[in-house]
Design a protein around this nucleic acid. Sequence first.
DNA 1: CGCCTACATCGAAGGTTGTCAATATAGTTT
DNA 2: AAACTATATTGACAACCTTCGATGTAGGCG
Lengths: 122, 122
Amino acid sequence: METTMDMLLTEMPTAGCCMPALAPRISPAEAQQLSDDLTMLSHPIRLQILDMLAQRDGEVCVCDLEAALPVKQPTVSHHLKLLRAAGLITCERRGLWAYYSVQREALAAMRRRILAQFDALQ
Amino acid sequence: METTMDMLLTEMPTAGCCMPALAPRISPAEAQQLSDDLTMLSHPIRLQILDMLAQRDGEVCVCDLEAALPVKQPTVSHHLKLLRAAGLITCERRGLWAYYSVQREALAAMRRRILAQFDALQ
DNA sequence: CGCCTACATCGAAGGTTGTCAATATAGTTT
DNA sequence: AAACTATATTGACAACCTTCGATGTAGGCG
C-alpha cells in the first residue's frame, strides 16, 4: 500500500500524474510582455499599416492609408494611435497632413523579443 | 495658381498627399493568416502552457498545468482546446489522465510564417 | 453496482476590442 | 473672417474573449 507521500517521492512509470514542480520557464511577467507585443501585431489593419509605412517611410498620410484599407478614417486613426502608443510608429505634421513613419529600431527590438522567447520554446 | 489636377500630376515637395496607389504588399488574406497566428500565441496562459509542454513532452497532464497556472481547471481546458484546434498540441488519454504534447513541427511552421512576414517589413 | 477522480463542456457574467457617425481641432485658402 | 480640409477624439454599439461555477462524461476502484 502506497501513501500519497510515497507516490510523490517515487517515480511513476505509467499511471499517476502531477510530477514534482512543473513550472513555466517563462515568468508570468515575461509571458505578459510577450503577449502584449503579439497583441499589438495581431490585427490585420495594423499589419497592413506597418507594411505600407515600411514601404514609404515618412511620406504616408492618413488619407493614403484610408484609401488602401477597408475601414473608415476614425478607425485608421484609432489603430495609428495604438501603434504610436506602442512606439512602433511616429507622426510628423506638415500643414494639414500627418505623415507617419515606422520606427524601425522599435520594430526590430520587438522582433528580437518575440524571437528570443519563441526560440526558448526550442 | 495650381489646380487639384496640377497637384496630382506634379511632384509635391512640401504640401500634398495621396500619392499614386499606395497598397500593402501583404494581402488582406496573408494579413489575416498572420493575425490569426499571432492571436493564438498572444495570451500569457497559452504561452506558459506551450512552454511547460515543451519542457516535458507527453508527460504533462491537466492537473500539472492547473497547479502551475493562476486559473481554474475549466479555463485550462479552454486554452488547451484552442491550442489543439490550432494544431499546436495533441493529447493522448491514458486511464483517467490526459497527457499533452507540443506538435513541434506545427510550432516551427508557425514560427516560420511569422518570421517570413516580419522580415518582409524589413 | 455506486462512488470517486480527471477532464470536458455549457452557459452566464464581465471585460476588452473594433467600428463608425458625429463632433472637435487646427491649419489653409479665399 | 468665413469656408474648407485633414486628422483626432468622443461616445455608442456590437462582437469577441476570458473566466468560472455547475454539470456532464468516462474510466478506475472498492
